[in-house]
């Protein structure tokens, strides 16, 4: 662990760190300095990343109900994974959300971002208005949406009825429940929009001017100038979006509980997960139910390990990106 100050000219990234011919005690001191900065975070990594991952793998081979000590059962939990109809439903739902919700949010955010980047007057107010919903706590936002989209008496269907449209059942219909969650997600695109907006405003003006001198129309300019310039940001948003959607829990849990209208007294909120007809039953919900409702923690850890593998694969895409980006930085 040798310290050199960053930014020394000529240091190439990835090359072994420059070693000064410093005395041993000096190097030890430097090491201590780094440790004094990093110790809490390193302990944090060991305790909250390395340990739980290893423990998860171990537990996945055990029968464990939280009450009795874990019992080694070999591959039993893993073979159950192959025959578990619920995991199929849950994974399909999560995949649906990844495929629909992530692009929908990105397109929506890009659209509003483009709109704001072009309009000069009032952009500040629009920006605030578009952004505010992103701040709403997910539980509150979900409650609000289930109320707004109540099939019989909700404001949305009431308004639709005024113009002669019979609204669908929204959160109460297996076909519409997930699209309704997408609408909820679109309501909160503000955070993504701000990122895209910043990226869009960073595109050098000269490039547009040059393109328009070449006679490129708006769409061609977007394709040739805007898109390449903001593609790193898009990639980052896509990867983080996928990761966020893989852990989609709160909205699905709350929407199901409220839309089902069933009292969960004595059964707990997890008794309504997936309403209606498992259409909002996501992978993390199943993990929670298996572990903490049915008390099958061994199998819950199988699900956790699988989720980890998927998440890390997606993250790898981002890390590849970081490699170039770590390098180009200094």
């Amino acid at each position: 662990m040798a310290i050199t100050t960053v930014g020394a000219p000529g240091t190439t990234p990835g090359a072994p760190p420059a070693r000064r011919s410093a005395p041993r005690w000096w190097r030890a001191r430097e090491r201590l300095t780094v440790l004094s900065f990093m110790a809490p975070a390193l302990i944090g990594l060991a305790l909250f990343l390395v340990y739980p991952l290893l423990a998860s793998v171990y537990f996945s081979f055990t029968k464990f109900d939280l009450i009795n000590p874990p019992q080694w059962v070999g591959l039993r939990n893993w073979t159950f994974l192959l025959h578990d109809p619920n995991v199929r439903t849950a994974a399909t739902n999560t995949l649906w959300l990844v495929v629909v919700m992530v692009p929908a949010r990105m397109l929506g955010a890009l659209g509003t971002g483009l709109l704001l980047a072009r309009s000069r007057r009032g952009a500040g107010i629009y920006r605030t208005l578009f952004y505010l919903p992103a701040l709403a706590p997910p539980v509150a936002a979900t409650l609000a949406f289930v109320f707004l989209f109540k099939p019989g008496t909700g404001p949305v269907n009431s308004l639709l009825a005024h113009v002669g449209i019979e609204g669908p059942l929204w959160f109460n219909s297996p076909q519409w429940a997930k699209p309704s969650l997408v609408l909820l997600a679109l309501w909160g695109i503000g955070d993504l929009m701000i990122i895209f907006l910043a990226a869009l405003l960073d595109v050098p003006k000269q490039l547009y001017e040059a393109a328009s001198l070449d006679g490129a129309n708006a769409w061609q300019q977007f394709r040739a100038v805007t898109l390449p310039a903001i593609s790193p940001v898009l990639l980052f948003a896509a990867v983080t979006g996928v990761i966020q959607t893989l852990q989609y829990f709160t909205q699905a849990a709350v929407a199901a509980s409220v839309a089902s209208g069933q009292a969960t007294t004595g059964g707990g909120i997890s008794s309504t997960f997936g309403y209606p007809e498992n259409s909002t039953f996501t992978y993390p919900l199943w993990l929670y139910v298996v572990g903490f409702r049915y008390g099958a923690l061994g199998y819950a850890n199988v699900l956790a390990v699988v989720l980890f593998v998927v998440a890390i694969t997606v993250t790898a895409i981002l890390l590849r990106r970081f490699r170039t980006f770590l390098g180009s930085e200094r």
């Binding site: 109540k150 099939p151 059942l169 109460n172 209208g261």
Partner: peptide
């Protein structure tokens, strides 16, 4: 559909 709409408009059980 009519029934589910009706059900969703009802008050809380408790």
């Amino acid at each position: 559909d009519k029934l589910e709409k009706f059900r969703a408009s009802l008050g809380d059980e408790w």
